[in-house]
Design a protein around this nucleic acid. Structure first.
Lengths: 341, 341
DNA sequence: GTGAAAGCGCTAACAC
DNA sequence: GTGTTAGCGCTTTCAC
């Protein structure tokens, strides 16, 4: 580590006691302004700053939170982190970032490194949905508050900030139906877990309300891997000939665009497409992509604000509470009948 | 912080001394295997893990590095962070993330919070190019190694991993010339600083070699703000009528696309366009966008590997050394003459 | 192989 | 307003 000088050396250089020097670095005003000035000046000169670990050991606080996310792949997570970092910085907190690559095991391993005082709270988008989450008990055991955003675990009692996905999916699917689609495929990374499931529920409800029978064959449960999902989507299109595709995550829509391009299938004439995405340039794609756009930045900010409320004792932890932020539905070329007949 | 139990309580619960318990958590094998087993089991049961701040205070190490970047806006930085996080995790290090919003003052403030032992090293893409960087002396004073990626400061002696921007710019500009362009505009956020400058130098050299006179009027120095750069680009196009635009950062190319769309200017027929960008779906834009694609992920990994080498004492710090990673030039529709005449 | 004890650098009573 | 002192929880000699 740094070859820093200690508070004792600084005190000696000034002919003061270390407590006086210490006071110069705390907020309290139980110190002569001139002395403080003198101390800070000398500190600057000698390159002294109070050792963080000694301070934290005394004070039992870290002023640090952790973000744990499954991946860094898309705009959604980078926007969310941006929001989290902003709120943290406004509160003079530091932000540790961890990526699990969608592995619940890695998530558990990361959690274990956090409960030794490293952080005062955790913001997470879950990677191991559908699995056991015993390891999260560890956080509770250490009184560390947890706030979920986007992807949460239903068996964990805490706050979650997410999108109004059921409604958005319902509306997106209804929109496809209104545009004449009858065989609407649903693509998910994992349709048994929170976002995959809720989004499918909205889709299913819209079908039902639109008088269309839900067909398991038209739903695809694929992987995060681009090659695999490309193959899966290609197969689905060839075998089922859907007239529309609703992708629950951006990556699957991109793969769909690539597949249709290769197969020479025209969007939206032959297949209409809509997806969840935070892409800023959806309107500049060819075709312009219809999207359900989640407020990722807002979501990150809101989740972090809640975390701070809990850490300050102004809000109950341990209560299962889901806050829904509204997504924007942006209908563009990819999902609509040609306006010019 | 966490209401954890201490090593003393754990020792008491086991009828052992705290030194023995401590040993169970260190790597050394100066402890009976059975005792160790018993201790770890009890620790698990009671939810004990050694207090990080006490350990670090004794050991003078943080196992943490910091990333400081100007923004989170584009794929480049999220890819780079992904690479950094990966290497850090492989080395059992933690990663703190800081965003400066392109403010050198914020950068300085962040640096000041890092020199108290919080981190063992820093990876940074500079925000305050062209300004004074005295505050970075602080890192040196505390023996904290620094590695730059992408945007570096020429007055600071340390390693930097960046793209071969001069060559890429030269080639991109030459490509425009080969496609018949004579009035090629250059767009930058700040043309007086490392990336803005080097990329412009490559552009200027290509013009010169192509027998085209460099025209200051055709270079634009605009802002990070989308609205402002939209206006600036619109003005440039209207006043100068360039037949090609070379954007040194992705955002300016996106704005250019929006401006030309609004003005009804066809790309590539009326204006050809190429830019630096890490967009994965550049080929799906309309028109498919020609790009200089930097190896962002690789850059993050490489920079972090260097940082670890320095931290381990296997590499000299304090040496101005720039490692260039090769970018891909991907020429697509936006920059080329129609192949079908 | 285990225990006793010193001390990492700092903060916060408590005295003066 | 400043100094003295105890101790945060842990690691690591040094004995035994």
């Amino acid at each position: 580590m740094a070859n820093s000088i200690t508070i004792i050396e600084l005190a000696a250089a000034l002919g003061l006691s270390k407590s006086t020097v210490s006071r110069a670095f705390r907020g309290n005003n139980d110190i002569n302004a001139a002395t403080k000035e003198r101390i800070l000046k000398k500190a600057e000169e000698l390159g002294f700053s109070p050792n963080l670990y000694a301070s934290n050991l005394r004070g039992s606080k870290s002023s640090t939170i952790a973000i744990i996310i499954p991946e860094f792949g898309n705009k959604f997570f980078s926007q969310a982190i941006k929001g989290i970092e902003l709120i943290a910085r406004n509160n003079d907190f530091h932000v540790l970032v961890y990526v699990t690559d969608h592995s619940a095991d890695k998530e558990a391993a990361i959690i274990r490194t956090l409960v030794n005082g490293r952080v005062d709270g955790v913001i997470m988008s879950g990677s191991g949905e559908g699995k056991s989450h015993q390891y999260l008990k560890l956080l509770k055991k250490h009184n560390l508050p947890l706030v979920f955003f986007d992807r949460y675990y239903e068996d964990i009692n805490t706050i979650c900030v997410t999108g109004n996905d059921f409604e958005s999916s319902y509306l997106a699917t209804s929109h496809l139906i209104e545009n004449g689609c009858k065989k609407i495929a649903y693509l998910a990374i994992n349709k048994n877990v929170s976002i995959g499931k809720i989004r499918m529920d909205g889709y299913a409800k819209a079908l039902s309300d639109g008088g269309i029978k839900f067909d398991e064959q038209l739903t695809l449960d694929t992987s995060n891997d681009a090659e695999i999902n490309y193959r899966d989507i290609e197969q689905l299109i060839k075998e089922q000939s859907p007239d529309a595709i609703f992708a629950s995550v951006e990556r699957l829509a991109i793969s769909t665009l690539r597949v249709t391009k290769t197969l020479g299938i025209h969007i939206p004439d032959q297949i209409k497409l809509i997806c969840f995405s935070c892409l800023e340039i959806a309107d500049m794609l060819s075709p312009a992509l219809s999207v359900v756009k989640q407020p990722a930045y807002e979501m990150g900010k809101k989740a972090t604000e809640y975390l701070f409320e809990i850490m300050r004792g102004n809000r109950e932890a341990d209560i299962q509470e889901v806050l829904f932020l509204e997504s924007d539905l942006i209908f563009q070329e990819s999902s609509q009948k040609k306006l010019t007949k």
